[in-house]
């Protein structure tokens, strides 16, 4: 980890959120930056790109998705969405549009910090590109397209492997149904969520220790899947 504290930009119009997030981020070793409107937030990103952006979707001056779109035009770093559960479609749209993760309101600080950590790790992976992923005794060699447990190869079909690679590539952030379907089956199948049910089920049978209690591939109901390896 570099010497400087990662800068976390929080864009939210609720002063109460800043009131506890500021001290919490500070205490967790980050440098919190506050923005009350989307316009302020975008200006701050442009001035000095933060390491992670936390963006509330319900902003008074701009639609959250619009703000996301504008930010993505000049910012490649991780963006975590704060959203309410009843705005499900908005949340999925935001993920599809390039947001990296989301946290549902109301949330505990620990949850948000975990997402921030995952986002920062992913950012580093992007830079360093880790070709071999391990999770316990499971190893996935992304160059050789090989999945092994304790050195014993596990047979996976090409589709299953593609799906696993997409999930692992997410690096702990949620990958939406649409992203998975488009990448593995092609854009014509972006609505065929039932494919995912079947193939994720098969993958869990092969790689999870207890397929009924998955710990590697987690389901985000209505949104997508997350690799927790």
């Amino acid at each position: 980890m570099s010497a400087h504290k990662p800068r976390i930009l929080v864009i939210d119009d609720e002063p109460q959120i800043h009131r506890f997030l500021g001290p919490a981020l500070d205490a967790a070793g980050y440098e919190p930056v506050r923005a009350d409107t989307a316009a302020d937030g975008l200006r701050e990103i442009a001035r000095k790109p933060p390491d992670v952006v936390v963006l509330d979707l319900g902003l008074p001056d701009m639609d959250g998705k619009q703000a996301l779109e504008k930010a993505r035009a000049f910012y490649k770093g991780p963006i975590i969405i704060l959203s309410a559960r009843d705005r499900e479609t908005e949340k999925i749209d935001a993920l599809d549009m390039g947001a990296d993760d989301y946290v549902e309101k109301p949330f505990g600080v620990g949850e948000l910090l975990a997402r921030i950590r995952a986002a920062l790790r992913h950012k580093l992976q992007d830079v360093g590109a880790e070709p071999i992923v391990t999770a316990g005794d499971l190893t996935i060699d992304l160059i050789k397209r090989l999945v092994t447990r304790s050195g014993v190869p596990i047979r996976v079909s090409p589709r299953e492997y593609d799906l696993l690679a997409q999930l692992v590539g997410g690096g702990g952030k949620v990958v939406t149904h649409r992203q998975l379907l488009t990448a593995v089956w092609g854009p014509a199948h972006e609505q065929d969520v039932q494919y995912l049910r079947v193939f994720v089920g098969q993958l869990r049978q092969k790689i999870e220790k207890d397929p009924a209690q998955p710990v590697l591939i987690l389901t985000e109901p209505g949104v997508g899947y997350r690799w927790m390896g």
Partner: peptide, 21 residues
């Protein structure tokens, strides 16, 4: 959705901040 959740977010967030840090 908004008016119940916002105060709850603050309460939960502040409380977890106090617990964790």
């Amino acid at each position: 959705s908004h008016d119940l959740r916002t105060p709850l977010s603050t309460v939960l967030g502040s409380a977890t901040t106090l617990i964790d840090f």
